[in-house]
Simulated assay, not measured.
Amino acid sequence: MSPLPEHLLQATRSRTEKVEKRARAALAQLAKAGAPISFTAVARKTAVSTDFLYKHPELRSLIERHRTKGGQVTGARSAEADSSSTSAAVRALGARLAQQRQSHHQEVALLRKALEVTQGENLALRRRLAQYEVD
């Protein structure tokens, strides 16, 4: 059984079909105008994410074919460029994540130390108060 109700699945399919049609139309317009064809150019013209274009197999192959026809990027070079830019992005995000993790660990250590100090002060005040309380 699907986690989504049927009406939501239909709405998603309908929206996807509309975006596919817009992407194909944008691709045709770019090709007709002789403009450089890339995933970014089609995404901007279509108002859709490049992620959608990359994940949609038919649109991806269409864009890659048009891009190759334009003489901008050959198939072997495009795969190499995509993988190098992807790995560079992954490395950059990994480094940023490691830096944030270290920063958070330092912040947590400082907060724990402050909590220990506060709990110690609280205990000392409770002991002083206990001296003045009459049972």
Rank of each mutant, 00 (worst) to 15 (best):
M1W: 02
P3A: 12
P3V: 14
P5C: 09
H7W: 10
L8H: 09
L8R: 10
L9D: 12
A11D: 14
T12S: 13
R13Y: 12
S14P: 11
R15E: 13
R15I: 13
R15M: 12
T16F: 13
E17A: 15
E20T: 05
K21C: 00
K21P: 05
R22N: 04
R22D: 02
A23T: 00
A23E: 06
A23Y: 07
A23L: 03
A26S: 11
Q29V: 06
L30V: 04
A31N: 02
K32H: 12
G34K: 07
G34V: 06
A35Y: 09
P36M: 00
I37S: 03
I37Y: 08
A41L: 05
A41M: 01
A41H: 03
A41S: 08
V42Q: 01
A43Q: 07
A43S: 00
A43P: 00
R44G: 02
K45G: 05
K45N: 01
T46A: 08
T46K: 07
A47H: 06
A47I: 03
V48I: 08
T50K: 14
D51V: 14
D51A: 15
D51G: 14
D51T: 15
F52H: 10
F52G: 08
Y54F: 12
Y54N: 07
E58C: 04
L59Y: 07
R60Y: 05
S61D: 11
E64D: 14
H66I: 06
R67I: 04
T68K: 01
G71P: 05
V73S: 07
V73E: 06
G75D: 02
R77D: 04
S78N: 06
S78Q: 01
A79M: 00
A79G: 03
A81T: 10
A81S: 10
D82P: 01
S85V: 06
S85H: 06
A88S: 08
V90E: 00
V90R: 07
A92P: 02
L93C: 01
L93W: 05
G94M: 03
G94C: 07
L97W: 14
A98D: 14
R101D: 15
R101E: 15
Q102Y: 11
Q102M: 13
Q102V: 12
S103V: 09
S103M: 14
H105P: 10
H105I: 13
H105M: 14
E107H: 13
V108D: 08
V108P: 08
L110A: 14
K113M: 08
A114E: 10
V117S: 12
V117Q: 13
T118K: 11
T118L: 11
L123D: 10
R126L: 06
R127F: 08
R127W: 01
R128H: 10
L129E: 07
L129V: 12
L129F: 11
A130C: 07
Q131H: 13
E133T: 04
E133D: 12
V134Q: 15
D135H: 14
